[in-house]
Structure formats: C-alpha cells, structure tokens
Design a protein around this nucleic acid. Structure first.
Lengths: 224, 224
DNA sequence: AGTATTTTGAACATTTGGTGAACATATCGC
DNA sequence: GCGATATGTTCACCAAATGTTCAAAATACT
C-alpha cells in the first residue's frame, strides 16, 4: 500500500523488517547507510515513511533525519528511528530530534509492523483509492486494470507504469522521472524505452489510451 | 529550480557540488577560475547564487566577489565562499568581504546543500511560485500555460521562453541574454530567432501578448 | 532444459518544431 | 519627410522529437 524506506547497515535487520512489511502489502526500499538512504529519498519521489537506524556508516540516522526535515518536499514524512540500546532513547527525546517514533533493538517484528501502521494512519495516509475513471478501473487489490469491466492484461512493467501515472495524474512527468520511479534509480537504460511501453500501454487502454498525453519536449502526462 | 554558479579550480570539488545541487533540481554552471566565472556571469543573465572558491588561478574568489558587488545587476546576488582552511575564516569576516555565507573545506555536501537552500530562501528566490497573472496561468506542474483556463499549446521553446520571462518579469532582457538563457550559453544562432519566437508566443498569449513589451534597441520585457 | 512471455533498444516512419532569409512595417535622428 | 536602422511577419526547408515495428535478449514459467 505504501512505499517505505528502511535504512540499516545490518543486513539481517533490514531483511527482517522488509519481509514483514512486504507481507503487509508495502513496497520496500532498502539502504545500507545514510548516504544511500538520502540518495533513495532524492530519487524516489513518493516515499511515505522512513525507518532509520541511528548508527550507520557514512551518515547516521540523525543526519538523514535532519536532511528529511530540511527538504520542503519531505519535511512532513513520518520517520521512525531504530536504536540499539535503551539508554539512547532518553537522549533522543532530549534532543527533540523530530522523529515521529522510536523503537529499540531488539524488537518484535510484529510490534514494529503495528507501529508502522499507526504512523501511516496518523499521517492521514491519503487513501488515494480513486482508481476508477469512467470505465477505466485500476484495481490494486486484484492487481489488474479493467476497461469496460474487462481485464486488459497488462504486463508487470505496464502495470507499474499505470500505477505511477495514476499516482501522479495531472502532472507532467519527464522520461527520466518515469525511469527513476518505475525502473528504479539505478537503472541506466535508454530513455526511449519509456516510449515503447507507453505505446503498448496506450494500445491496451483502448479508448482510454488518449488519456496518456504527450508533453512534447518533456515527457508524458496522465489525464483524468 | 535555480541557476547556480560554482567556481573552483579543483574538478573533484566542482563535480561534487554540482552533482549534489543538480539533484536538488538546480541548474549548474561551472567555472574553473575567476575569469571564467566572470565571463559566465556576464553571459548568463539569471544566475541566482554564486559559490566561489577563495583560491583560484587567474582571479581569486575575492576578485570575483568584488566584481559581482560592483555590477548593479548582480550586486544583490547571494554569494557563498569556499575556503580551504578554518583559519582563513576569521580573516574573511574581518575583511567584511560582503559574502553571504562561508563554508570551509572539507565540507559535507549535504550541509552545503542545506546552506544553499537557506541562502536562496533568504534571497526570496524560492517562493517565486507566482504563476498566475489575471487569467494568465503558468502551470509548471502540468507543464502548460493557460489563458482564460484554456491551454494555449506552447511548443517546447515557447514554453521555456515563457518560464524565463516569468522568472525575470519587469526586467529588460537583451536578445543575447535570452539566447543564452533559453537556448543555452553554447548556442550560436541568429539573434533574430528570438524575435520569431516572441511573435509566436505573443500570438498564442492572445490578449496577454502585449505583456511582452519591446524594449527598442535592446530586447524585450515581460510586464505584469 | 525448454518454452512462453516480457523487455529492450535499434531502425525506420511520421509528426512537429526551429530556424533564418526575405520582405514589410515601424521608429528614430536629422 | 527621408534615409537608416530596428522590429514585425511570413514561410519553406531542415532538424528534432515522438510514434511504431520488430527481432534479439532477458526473464519467468513449467
């Protein structure tokens, strides 16, 4: 349901958290240090929650938190801090570091999942469940897109593209942004690949194909 | 969002700063010495911040700073100085050199980014989200310009021209400046090409076409 | 391993936009 | 008012962006 960033240098912890939250339907982004976390935040536009370990190489959790609060776009992102020892907790509160929640290691994955849920709810996680536009129905539960009630059989990439467009309707998206968001920030492919997928998506959308408008000299825009 | 000049003779530093600030959405101009920096400032009309290394060949950072403060057009440009050693800092302040901020090497790119952001905010540049002038609406999110609520279908060059005018409203812009800003500083084309685009832009702006005034013997000015 | 599906980008087609020469018109200094 | 210069306007050619097709490569499925 949401896109969540987990930053921790311990692979075990990262995997553990990521696996549990994935099972809750979230999309997980993983970073093994602070620099990486910041890069992910910069490049991935729609992160809805960040879980940061305090102790990390390159840049610690506080630095990343400060970065998040400084950037206008991310300033209001809910942030959960992971700390290794209970003693640090007081320090954290004393520092008024601006995090939204603290969890001390070792933690129970289920407790963590519950707190994540709370944070997302508290953040008013905009239930952007508007996925029906006329006879175009983007069904994220069934993981399919229907036109006139019939599944149009999108491939994985086409589906992700569709979701990205849906989450950014009315916004002009450059090919670069689309590549970063749908293919991943570490993908270095031809920008024109986007065009090819757009074409196929438009074709499958049939009468709704025109809803994906070309923004000449820039990229594309999904209109509803 | 903003156009920023970085002048430093060390390529590594230049690239580092440029890369980070690019990720923040800024357009970067790079100079490897003071002479080059001044040339770029002369040719590029809308530089919003200059980051100058103190120690550079040809002309050092102070000389460039003095130049900036002497020119009426650039006198108020925020300037950030980079200095190699902490000791120099006192000296700088003592000299009252007129820079807006100082950063000592080695520095954290993120700290630098944050300070840049502060300077731009302080300069009142960032909040220039005024894109509605009566019934003329310049929508950078949708990447379109509307008059009376209707998209006037600008071509890429026309759109960029419009944005440039919007960011420099009330300022007389020579054809050279316009070419440098919209076409790129490495473009060598006919100055009259600007006229052709102005004509088309005026036509599409309809009743607002007159807002682009001719400054005879010089260039054009967007008035609101 | 073998088959089916999906992804990818090169190649070509088509559409759209950019450019500057040429001519028309306006403005200025005298 | 006249010539000189600057700007407005039009248009045809060329350049660039996007659409489209396709086959090879990668991936998933069995």
């Amino acid at each position: 349901m949401s896109v969540i960033l987990i930053a921790d240098d311990e692979v075990r912890i990262r995997r553990l958290v990521a696996d549990f939250l994935k099972r809750d339907g979230h999309t997980m982004l993983e970073a093994s240090n602070g620099e990486e976390a910041i890069r992910l935040i910069e490049q991935h536009g729609e992160i809805e929650l960040a879980i940061l370990d305090v102790m990390m190489p390159e840049k610690d959790g506080f630095s990343v938190l400060r970065y998040i609060r400084e950037q206008e776009l991310t300033a209001k992102m809910p942030v959960m801090m992971l700390t290794a020892r209970a003693e640090e907790l007081d320090q954290l509160h004393g520092l008024q570091s601006g995090a939204d929640d603290y969890v001390t290691k070792p933690f129970s994955p289920l407790v963590l999942c519950a707190r994540v849920k709370n944070l997302l709810l508290r953040a008013g996680k905009k239930d952007d469940n508007t996925n029906k536009f006329g006879e175009l129905d983007i069904d994220e539960i069934r993981h399919e897109v229907r036109v006139n009630g019939k599944d149009i059989g999108l491939t994985p990439k086409e589906y992700e593209l569709m979701i990205y467009f849906k989450n950014n309707r009315g916004i002009a998206l450059s090919r670069e942004k689309i590549l970063n968001a749908v293919w991943g920030y570490d993908y270095f492919g031809d920008l024109r690949t986007v065009d090819t997928h757009i074409k196929k998506l438009r074709a499958k959308l049939g009468e709704y194909g025109g809803k994906i408008e070309t923004v000449r000299g820039y990229g594309y825009r999904f209109e509803v």
